[in-house]
Amino acid sequence: MKWGTKYGPEYVNRLYAMVRRHLSGDFKFVCLTDDGAGIRPEVLCLPIPPLDLSLAPGQRDGAWKKLTTFSADLHGLSGTALFLDVDVVVVGGLDAFFEQPGEFLIIHDYARPWRRERITGNSSVYRFELGAHADVLDYFRANTEKVQAEFRNEQRYLSDFLYRQHKLNYWPTQWCPSFKYHGIPPFPANLWREPFVPDGSRIMIFHGECNPPDALAGRRNRLFRYIRPANWVARYWKE
Score class of each variant (00 low, 15 high):
147 V>M: 03
229 P>D: 01
70 F>W: 05
121 G>I: 07
90 V>D: 00
157 Y>C: 05
96 A>W: 12
81 A>Q: 04
134 A>I: 08
215 A>R: 09
193 R>H: 10
120 T>N: 12
154 E>L: 01
208 G>H: 04
203 I>C: 02
33 T>F: 07
127 R>K: 07
99 E>G: 14
185 P>F: 08
155 Q>K: 05
94 L>A: 05
62 G>T: 12
79 G>P: 07
145 E>R: 15
208 G>K: 08
34 D>A: 07
60 R>F: 11
156 R>K: 13
170 Y>L: 03
65 K>N: 15
213 P>R: 07
203 I>D: 07
14 R>L: 09
162 L>R: 02
232 W>D: 10
67 L>F: 06
207 H>L: 11
235 R>T: 13
230 A>Y: 05
193 R>S: 01
173 T>R: 15
14 R>W: 09
82 L>N: 00
30 V>N: 04
166 H>C: 13
42 E>F: 04
214 D>W: 10
199 D>K: 14
150 E>N: 13
40 R>A: 15
202 R>N: 03
4 G>H: 08
40 R>C: 15
56 A>H: 00
168 L>E: 10
178 S>P: 10
129 E>W: 00
38 G>A: 01
188 P>A: 11
195 P>Y: 08
81 A>K: 03
175 W>V: 04
237 W>G: 06
87 D>G: 09
137 L>Q: 09
110 Y>R: 15
